[in-house]
């Protein structure tokens, strides 16, 4: 950009002015999108932070008075009679269940998704598209409908139990609905494509000469998988795991439908504060907590992605 010709000042200034005009034009062109997002996505998030530091109103809503009650009650609860402060077991249990189920879902998704992505990546060009298409269709289908489809399969009068009863393997239907297992199955079913797609993207680029070199050096299939293929696709593994873990953690529909009223997750706990709970500040504080966990997971991802990127690039 630095022009060292005669009259450098003039040329540089003209270029800078043109740059400024260009920048302003680009900002103006982006402005409508930014304004809509500011109004209906980002601005309201700031209000959530403010609300988490207010007192709760009698019938929902808030009173405009500073208070840290909401934040305290994320982890602690006050006995209404004795004012004794104890750990809020109910909340911690839900936190723990959310993290546990999201983690198990991620592990299961990896266990099923890795071979599937590998299978697709090792097909020939033409049929690869078709297999990918088959993974994409469920991903584009309404999440509620997919959850409903799982419900049809696992409920007491559902397919699995009809078959089991019909074959005489069990005398009474096996209760699968409204258990943690049902919620996990639902999450796995719903988010599996999110694991397969990034895994596929990194497997597609595997240089199979490296795999061949592994075999030439007397590696077994397991060794090749663990020492050659897995390190090559690690960025995809991390991306897929994050993409499954984050929405599982904030899941609302799947635990509501498959978990019933008892097996709540964080998303349901948050929603409850705005429904029956009528504790908006607590709901706001819980939302921020959820978002903080998500941000930590994302930062971990970004850090890892840039590290591996630097090593290979």
């Amino acid at each position: 950009m630095a022009d060292a010709k005669p009259a450098p000042n003039f040329a540089a200034r003209a270029a800078a002015a043109a740059d400024r005009r260009d920048t302003r034009g680009r900002w103006l062109l982006s402005a409508p999108a930014l304004l809509i997002l500011l109004f209906a996505a980002i601005g309201p998030l700031i209000i959530v932070v403010i609300y988490s530091f207010l007192k709760k109103g009698g019938y929902g809503g808030v009173e405009w008075e500073f208070s840290t009650d909401a934040w305290t009650s994320v982890v602690f609860q006050k006995d209404i009679f004795t004012d004794e402060i104890t750990i809020a077991d109910a909340h911690l249990l839900i936190f723990w269940r959310s993290v546990k189920l999201s983690f198990l879902t991620t592990v299961m998704a990896l266990a099923f998704g890795f071979p599937t992505a590998y299978f697709i990546a090792t097909r020939n060009e033409k049929s690869r598209d078709l297999w990918l298409f088959l993974i994409t269709i469920p991903f584009w289908t309404n999440l509620l409908i997919r959850t409903f489809a799982v419900m049809e399969v696992i409920r007491n009068e559902g397919i699995v139990n009809s078959i089991l009863l019909g074959l005489g393997l069990v005398d009474a239907p096996v209760q699968i609905m409204f258990t943690d297992f049902a919620v996990m199955m639902g999450l796995l079913y719903v988010y599996l494509p999110l694991m397969v797609l990034p895994l596929y993207a990194s497997m597609e680029r595997i240089d199979f000469r490296l795999v061949e070199a592994g075999y030439d050096l007397y590696a077994t299939r397991w060794h090749v998988l663990r020492r050659v293929i897995f390190p090559l696709v690690k960025p995809g593994v991390i991306a897929g795991s994050i993409l499954v873990f984050i929405p599982s953690l904030g899941a609302y529909v799947t635990p509501r439908v498959l978990g019933g009223g008892r097996n709540l997750m964080l998303g349901n706990l948050i929603e409850m504060q705005f429904g029956q709970g009528r504790n908006w500040p607590l709901g706001a504080a819980l939302s921020i907590t959820l978002m903080a966990i998500v941000m930590v997971a994302l930062l971990f991802y970004v850090k890892n992605a840039s590290k591996t990127g630097a090593r290979h690039g």
Binding site: A40, G250, Y252, L290
Partner: peptide, 11 residues
């Protein structure tokens, strides 16, 4: 980046 439930609550 933000979980849907959080955006929903904010709105």
């Amino acid at each position: 980046m933000v979980p849907e439930i959080v955006t929903g609550v904010a709105l």
